[in-house]
Design a protein around this nucleic acid. Structure first.
Lengths: 236, 236
DNA sequence: GCCGCGCTTCGGTGGCGGGCGAAGCGGCAG
DNA sequence: CTGCCGCTTCGCCCGCCACCGAAGCGCGGC
């Protein structure tokens, strides 16, 4: 992972309207002269020259002299790819999207702090509430008598959960846009599932994996147990 | 494609060292308090608050109030993806890379202005020079007698090529990092190949395809003809 | 040789944005 | 209720950067 300063320096190059317009004009792979780019950006020749010098210096743009013209083009495919990604991001921010086309692996099961998130986390939350094991309480949730018995039978240390600052509360799920269970109870449920090997940790997909060591997988035994106890089935 | 101003506004949010440090800290998906983020960025609480307000306003960060703490996290997977892409770009700019892992489709054959680029463009250039059809001349290349005859046999209008401002010159290839043939001759060769259906245009892969309508594909007949005439074989 | 054109450099101006200290607001605990 | 703590808002200063006009440089054309 690059240093924040280095990343910011690169991003700052894209963060000016005039430079962004120039880069978008070069996005197709064409080489354009400084004058053309100045007109595209709506600025004078001196300003365009300064901008292009910074882009070249930053390694985003390559320049090729030909007679009295200077042709500029994007320096690499990475620049085009980053530009495209930023464009997607800009559009998605302007008009929030409906689907989640990326990152399937993220969404099945993962740790969020110390509790289970992803589709499994949401399903657990629904199962606990749907079975009447949890009931709404001030600031979150409380266990019912059936819940205390059922959780104990699964091997969850409810007593330990009560020592936490918050016993059971909602946590907005990053990928599912629905809440899952957090707080001491969320922590103890995750610990119980890991201890009994119903959940296993999955190593990072690669160096710099956005989720780090947070990926989880439900084991066959875990799927059976959670289905039997709570009717929890994680959608494929 | 978003407007340059909108793209720049998003990029500018990433283009500040303090904000970049905060976003990198949130990259793992954890929710962090404003105070923690201020410490990470090495700035005071007021400055951090202002930065976070802009990030939230820009839709890059989501905030969740919990008691007197405010937990911040990346608003969507797109933000994480864009951050990762920018990081890659920053590293590749700092230390130019050796491989080209992305965008295979870009590199086989495409139009660069009006001539052929990509591996096919480079191979054509090598073939023309290797067969002795082109010889170095002031400012580019000139045809030999064998070249004039061979090109005419292929159906290339060399006379029309001579009317261009430049007859034959090198053009640095974006993806291959080697030169291919440009100028009037490059244009005529591309026109000839398209006219005889040795090359076909490939429609954009999707809306907003970086290469637009510039993608090309070598037809089986084209592969045979170019191999026979010039020994041109495009590596798979 | 001279002129013309594209581009860059220089000097100066203006405005946006980041930084901090001090004060204000809100939640939590004793 | 009162004090503490996290966070925000306000007011202010400073520095960076974008922009333009004018002048300088380099290449190509007449």
């Amino acid at each position: 992972m690059p240093t924040p300063a280095a990343l910011a320096a690169t991003a700052a190059l894209l963060g000016d309207p005039a430079r962004a317009a120039m880069l978008q004009a070069m996005f197709g792979g064409e080489a354009l002269t400084a004058g053309e780019l100045a007109r595209v950006a709506g600025i004078g020749a001196p300003a365009a020259s300064a901008h292009l010098a910074r882009l070249v210096d930053g390694g985003l743009v390559a320049v090729h002299r030909q007679g009295r013209h200077r042709y500029h083009r994007l320096a690499s495919e990475e620049v085009a790819a980053a530009l495209e990604m930023l464009g997607d991001l800009t559009l998605s921010v302007a008009a929030p999207r409906r689907g989640w086309p990326h990152g399937e692996g993220f969404r099945a099961a993962r740790l969020c702090w110390d509790h289970v998130a992803g589709r499994l986390g949401v399903a657990l939350h629904q199962g606990l509430v749907g079975r009447g094991w949890l009931t709404p309480a001030a600031g979150g949730w409380a266990t019912t008598a059936a819940g205390d018995a059922g959780l104990a039978a699964l091997g969850v240390d409810v007593t330990a959960a009560r020592t936490a600052r918050r016993f059971a509360c909602d946590c907005m799920d990053w990928s599912e846009r629905r809440v899952h269970l957090a707080g001491g109870l969320g922590r103890e449920i995750a610990a119980c599932c890991l201890r009994r090997h119903w959940l296993s940790r999955v190593p990072p997909a690669r160096e710099g994996d956005p989720l780090g060591r947070r990926r989880l997988a439900l084991t066959p035994e875990g799927a059976r147990q959670l289905d039997a106890a709570l009717g929890v089935r994680v959608p494929a």
